[in-house]
């Protein structure tokens, strides 16, 4: 058990000193990876744990990012203070959207989430209520500052983002091993049985959806803070596809898997820059190959083992 607890430390320590050896470009790649890792983890709750087929996660990410941008540029409230507001906005939006559709079967839910993603993007492009800036997006978001330090360089954001990744991992780990997490896994495996055992499936599915979406909204805030300009092009269907691929490729329901998935999905296109215009071709081929050779994802989630002291060794395992 002790060894397992050491693993996060063994991952975190090199990550903490890594930027000292990298140039601004690679640090920024890691920043991008960090943002997608958080998005992946939040989507993992919805797809990996609750088993809801969501291909429109970018919508909630967009709601968070635009909330941050609009409030910051009109009222001048520092971006990072808006983190809870953004989470709340995205969560409430998800609640309103998901309530009537949460009972849909897998693939029907998939197209509805794609639809929601597209509706949000089109609304942003069409300058909804005159506050989203149309396809120009919103610019001039104030750079965030912590105490007296204004976050400016990729290195600053590296620490901001990866501390937030660590926080995300921590929170979702707690969630996974809570009553809530157990209920989700139960209903993913068999929602009829779960319902029969008194789990309110619709409620838990909805909660998973709202929590995942709310977290994506907070990531949207960080993205807005980092870019200082946001536009609808950053929240297309393609972004949702990337997040989805991160979860499934890494290993649905497995946090180390999702982190690795983020490294591959965001990092590989950067590594493939040398292939010039063939880089997305190679990337597509790599996606197929990884799926074909690791059908369960790169690091599949393992079944949980509960030790029952009263059972004799060798008897309780079927």
């Amino acid at each position: 058990m002790n060894r397992r607890q050491l693993i996060p430390l063994a991952v975190a320590a090199p990550l903490a000193v890594l930027p000292l050896f990298l140039n601004a470009y690679w640090i920024d790649v890691l920043n991008s990876i960090g943002i997608y890792a958080m998005l992946g983890l939040s989507l993992n709750l919805i797809v990996g744990h609750a088993g809801l087929f969501n291909l429109g996660h970018a919508a909630f990410y967009a709601v968070g990012a635009y909330t941050a941008a609009i409030v910051n540029t009109t009222f001048g409230i520092p971006v990072l203070l808006l983190l809870p507001v953004c989470g709340l906005a995205a969560g409430l939006f998800a609640l309103a959207v998901a309530r009537p559709i949460i009972h849909l079967r897998g693939d029907y839910l998939c197209i509805v989430t794609i639809g929601v993603g597209e509706i949000v993007r089109i609304a942003l492009v069409n300058n909804l209520f005159g506050i989203t800036g149309g396809s120009n997006g919103i610019f001039g978001i104030a750079r965030p500052s912590i105490f007296d330090l204004t976050l400016r360089t990729p290195l600053h954001f590296y620490y901001l983002i990866w501390i937030f990744v660590a926080l995300t991992v921590f929170v979702f780990h707690l969630l996974e091993y809570s009553r809530f997490g157990r209920a989700l896994n139960y209903l993913r495996e068999d929602d009829v049985a779960a319902e029969g055992s008194g789990v309110n499936t619709a409620h838990y599915k909805l909660m998973a959806f709202v929590v995942g979406a709310g977290w994506a909204g907070m990531v949207g805030n960080i993205y807005a803070a980092k870019m200082t300009i946001i536009s609808p092009e950053s929240f297309t269907f393609w972004e949702s596809v990337l997040m989805f691929a991160i979860v499934i490729l890494g290993g649905s329901g497995s946090m180390p898997g999702v982190l690795l998935g983020a490294f591959l999905i965001v990092g590989l296109p950067e590594l493939f820059r040398e292939f010039a215009n063939a880089r997305m071709l190679v990337f597509g081929a790599a996606m197929i190959a990884m799926m074909v050779f690791r059908t369960q994802g790169l690091i599949p989630s393992r079944p949980r083992i509960y030790r029952i002291p009263a059972v004799e060794k060798g008897e309780g395992r079927a």
């Binding site: 797809v47 691929a245 499934i248 990337f283 597509g284 996606m287 197929i288 799926m291 369960q296």
Partner: peptide
């Protein structure tokens, strides 16, 4: 024989390719 969503990601990769 693998989870259904794995094939979806493979399909997305094929589409990009």
């Amino acid at each position: 024989e693998s989870p259904r969503l794995s094939a979806v990601v493979s399909a997305l990769g094929a589409s990009i390719f």
